[in-house]
Structures are given as C-alpha cells and as structure tokens.
Amino acid sequence: MANVKKAIKISQKHLLGIQDLSISDVNYILSEAKQFISLNKSKNKKLDILRGKTQINLFFEPSTRTQSSFELAGKRLGADVMSMNLNNSAIKKGETLIDTAMTLNAMHPDIIVVRHQDSGASNLLSQKVKCAVLNAGDGRREHPTQALLDALTIIDRKEKIEGLRIAICGDIVHSRVARSNIYLLNMLGAEVNIIAPSNLMPKNIDKLGVNSFSDMEKGLKDCDIVMMLRLQNERMTSSFLSSNREYYEYYGLTPDKLEFAKDDALIMHPGPMNRGIEIDTRLADDINKSVIKEQVELGVAVRMACLKIFCE
C-alpha cells in the first residue's frame, strides 16, 4: 500500500523548515504519513521502500525522542541507518560543521537528518552536501517534523485544523517547535494564540500572524488545542524568570486554567516534559485530555513519510 506512487511531488529538495513548504507539500507529507499509522500498529512493521539507501542521523545536540523516532522510521522503511552523536567528538576537536558535512558527503549517504544547536545549521549543511537534508531541529528556528506530527495528531482527533483555535504556551522565545507550529497551523487555517511571559516572548511575534497574550486566561479562552512547551533552561543564559514555582503558578497548565479552554480541548506537549513546572502531572497523564503519547506514536509515521519522500 505504501508503495503506491503518487503523482504529487514535493517542491523542495530538503526539509529545512515549514516556511519553505507549500500547502500541497504539507498535504502530501501528511497523506503519506497517514498510510504508515496502521503499519506501525501491525505485527510486521518492516518495509523495503528504502532498501539500499543510507540514512545518517547527525545529532550535535542531545536528543532522545527525535533521534530514536528518526532511527526507527528509517529502519522500518528498510534503510541502513547510522546515528552519530557529535555533541562531544569532532566539534570539540575543532572540526567545523562544513568539514563534518564534507566528510559525510564523501560516504555518499542518501539522506542526512541533522540536529544542531545553532539556528540555520541545517541550511548551511544543505548547501554543502549532495543528498537531501532533513532538519531535526536547528537552534531556535525550526523543527518541521515536530510541527507535522502535531498537525497529524490534531487531524487524527479533530479531523481538521481549519477553524480551530490553538494556543501555544510557554517558552516561545527559545522554541523552534513554536515557530514551526506557527507557520504550519497558520497555513492550515487555524487561529493561533501565543501565550508567554514577556521575557519569553520573541519580539514582533504578532507579525507572524498570531495573537499574543501574557495572560493564560485570555489566551486560552475557547481554545480547541492547548500546546504546552518545555521551559528550556539550558538555553537561558541569564535570569528570565524568578522561579519555577512562580512560573507554574501563572503559566503552568493546571485543571483550573484548562477550564478557560473549550470543554473538549486537547493537551499537547512536544516533550520532554517538566512535570510540575509547565504542566500539572495529572493533566499530562489524563488519557481523555492529553494526546502526548499519540504525538510520539505519530511522530514515527510522519518521519517515515518524510524519509520516503525526500529520499526519492
């Protein structure tokens, strides 16, 4: 079933960001991903679509879920997958990103999945290698597969995205997930509310076509989806907040605050979660409200679709 050739082609050689995609690109990726959902639940999960292809996962930043998700996705499609964690090897020896790229390029991979702590790193890499590059997160800029899996999760539960009111809440300034989601959800016709304390709100965010709030009650009003983000303490070089305790008080998602959203609102989180800081642990585990596990599950399907499409 997944072998059916589609007439639609993707407009880009690389997947660097949602910003570069057209709406038909997005629909194509999502429709391909849907086909893999049931496969991932079946007993025999192995396909041979990417047999003979080489996938390199190049992770300059520690990652558990994204890296394992990409690894599993590649393996299920039959690709030879090599994962490299570079946060403590070549870079420490003074090798630049471009040197690393040239070295890998000489090994003729078919696709490189890259995560890097600097915004724009995947763009730079894509200019220097011959194969396709999939961005698995670059600095604060974009994390396109996360946004795509979030969209797939929403569609899976709410059937559509158009017309929904979706709140993205938390550490927006440091978040590539927020940026990719803003672009994608806007493209698919949602109304996007951004909620964050002023210190964690990027400048001129309104110009991206969203409503911004520093107050949870106003921002969550009548929302269909509440997407919570992790406080990225590792990216905070100076004091942004007084304490986690105060943050939880005003911006942590609690049952009380969830009342402001619609009754059937769903809770999302890209993980890893800081329980008791941005989200109440009961809500995180509430199977009626939280779709956090589903996000992880559909993440593999979305990444399979991306690998398949961009490997071709």
């Binding site: 915004s119 670059d138 400048k203």
Partner: peptide
C-alpha cells in the same frame, strides 16, 4: 532585535 531575529531564531 525584531521580526528578522524572531524568524531566523537568532538572538537579537
């Protein structure tokens, strides 16, 4: 610090 720093994800 402005829309470009926000879009590119660079510190402004």
């Amino acid at each position: 610090d402005g829309i470009i720093s926000t879009k590119l994800g660079l510190q402004g």
